[in-house]
Amino acid sequence: MIEISNLTKIYGSGPQEVMALKEVSLSIRKGEIFGIIGLSGAGKSTLIRCINMLERPTQGTIMVDGQDVGSLNSLELRQLRQKIGMIFQHFNLLSSRTVFENVMFPLEIAAVPKNEAAQKVNALLELVGLTDKAQVYPEQLSGGQKQRVGIARALANDPKVLLSDEATSALDPQTTRSILGLLKDINRQLGLTIVLITHDMNVIKDACDRVAVIDDSTIVEVGDVLNIFSNPGTPTSRSFINSIVNREIPAEILQRQFIDHGLNSSRLIRVSFIGASAGEPIISSMVQKYAVAANILYGNIDQLKDIPFGNLTLELIGPVETINEALDFLRKCGLEIEVLNHAGN
């Protein structure tokens, strides 16, 4: 549906030159929800704006539904844009228009006859559940309602693609979930291809089929969300996955006294696991193999479909050498180990 090849975007020129995107290539399939995740400044916002030419690429081509977007003249581009809906972090609704008139706006642009347009608007407002707010001005709406208007407006001209520019970043977690739910419904019902950018791994986890991880202007990893979660190939992906697992350890645990000598030494460790290894009884085999006791102090596990990921905070008790052997064993099993208390703590 969308083919991006060798896309490079450079802002400014000479000494002020900033490279926002560097030779980005992506292939987005028809009917999927494709997520692009990256930190702010990574280039994701520029990338999504290149798809509908709100930003002109410096180099590279973008094909949307077989059309080379960069080669269109301004009339052709405007016609194509009518078929690419877009929603925004700050909604961008017109304060001079009611909800009804806001959704009507793209239909006015496309010169759809008034009667037909009004029917369309009513159907869209029903789809997003805002029929009762038709005559209200955006200022009276909550963030979630505003985004629903944004979605209705983006769907007005029956687009083939919906671009979502951090559409849930200004919303609370509960509203985020309901907006993502709406996007998933629309994706299923209308077979709409959705491209969304976000910095929130929860959004990727909850809504996307495939994901591209963007870091420092380049795509570092692309794949099925499931695969990335079970086997993140880059430190960036790993840190995004870790970011949605609660890693804060309660203060009272850290304040406990740990002995660092003799047969009853103890170590406080954090074990992070993603994917398959979590299903195996690694901790219990460690306890059986080595003469250490494991005391589970704190843990956090989430699941994506059937793949668990999360972390455990353990206190290992036993002779120092044995503890170290046990830690080596855990590392060999593919777990990420972090020792939280060091000698003398």
Partner: peptide, 12 residues
């Protein structure tokens, strides 16, 4: 953002 939104809808 409002102008960008209108552009994204194909406004002249």
């Amino acid at each position: 953002g409002l102008i960008e939104a209108a552009l994204s809808m194909g406004a002249s």
